[in-house]
Write a protein that binds this DNA or RNA. Structure first.
Length: 305
DNA sequence: AATCCGAACAACCGCCACTTA
DNA sequence: GTAAGTGGCGGTTGTTCGGAT
């Protein structure tokens, strides 16, 4: 991992919330060159942040394919199920939730699911808190829906209303994308960043590309152990979604292969990234060939590494 | 209308595992 | 074999907002 391109850490790193300009710089750089060596990235990208901060920002917020907003009942069930078996292994849990980050899962657990589980435990040891159902997540769920919807509202306001939901358009639960596809800004978090609407990875990788990359919707889940399979059995659609993932390799800035991964979906147009790539001179068709197909690899997703 | 409080979320910090020279 | 450096993970904190009083 030692990388000659990595400069010594600079002092005076900026901290705190990321500005839209910083986001833009980071995204531009990674989309052009891949992240490569994180510690060297800030200097190259013209950011006054440390590599860790950049990495976190990319992984938790900027990375294409991320899903923001409401957890679907299936996702909740998956989180609770996996947490029961894995404990606080948020990254492991997140691997079973396409488009969710460990940080998001962790936050969601700490702020919501944990309380529900505890409440359920108080009601009766043998009766764990019932997961939200597709017919309605209950009053607490409703309150959360109105409270949390998140940045996708900004996306809906700034871009196509269906851009967010296209992350899991196939066989996805309706509740999952309730905020992504549904209530516009009014129902979503008002203080969400007004820029950089959330764009699902599916929006910028055509399904045909995914098929070419080898992942097909009907592919099997290699190496998925029984426990994991059982744990996430309730959210089978997630597996099928993951089956559409592809993975390619490109040369990273440090001379190593940087694995970039795809997450396929319908042929929904990539309205933001199309615009973005146009801006930086990269054709959308170039993405598939240059490997700008970042999300989770199959192996990562299934915890095979 | 102003203030307080809890919730939600983004980001930081510290530790650990892994890789490479 | 060892040390240095990086990346990743989990815990925790800080900030912002909405709702209640």
């Amino acid at each position: 991992m030692v990388c000659k391109a990595c400069d010594k850490p600079k002092p005076n790193y900026r901290k705190g919330l990321w500005s839209p300009e910083e986001d833009e710089k980071l995204r531009d750089y990674i989309l052009r060159h891949g992240h490569g060596c994180w510690s060297a990235l800030p200097a190259k990208a013209g950011l006054h942040r440390n590599g860790k901060s950049c990495r976190l920002r990319w992984i938790n917020y900027l990375r294409p394919g991320l899903k923001h907003g409401m957890f679907s009942p299936e996702e909740e069930e998956t989180v609770m199920s996996l947490h029961a078996t894995l404990g606080n292994k948020w990254s492991r849990i997140a691997r079973h939730l396409p488009g969710r980050t460990d940080n998001e899962v962790k936050n969601y657990w700490n702020s919501y699911l944990k309380k529900r589980v505890e409440a359920g435990a108080k009601e009766g040891p043998g009766t764990p808190a019932p997961p939200a159902t597709s017919s309605g997540a209950g009053d607490t769920e409703d309150s959360r829906q109105s409270a949390k919807p998140g940045e996708d509202g900004a996306a809906a306001a700034d871009g196509p209303a269906d851009s967010g939901g296209s992350s899991e358009p196939r066989e996805s639960s309706s509740a999952d994308s309730s905020c992504l596809t549904g209530p516009p800004a009014a129902a979503c978090r008002p203080h969400a960043p007004p820029v950089a609407p959330k764009v699902m990875f599916a929006d910028w990788l055509d399904m045909d590309v995914v098929d070419c990359l080898g992942g097909g919707p009907g592919a099997a889940a290699p190496g998925l152990d029984a426990a994991s399979a059982g744990a996430v059995g309730a959210s089978d659609q997630h597996h099928r979604q993951v089956m559409s993932q592809g993975s390619v390799q490109v040369d990273g800035p440090c001379g190593v292969d940087v694995s970039l991964h795809g997450f396929g979906d319908s042929g929904a147009s990539c309205w933001e990234f199309q615009e973005h790539f146009d801006g930086i001179g990269i054709g959308i068709d170039q993405m598939s060939t240059t490997g700008f197909c970042d999300l989770l690899s199959m192996s990562d997703y299934f915890g095979l590494n």
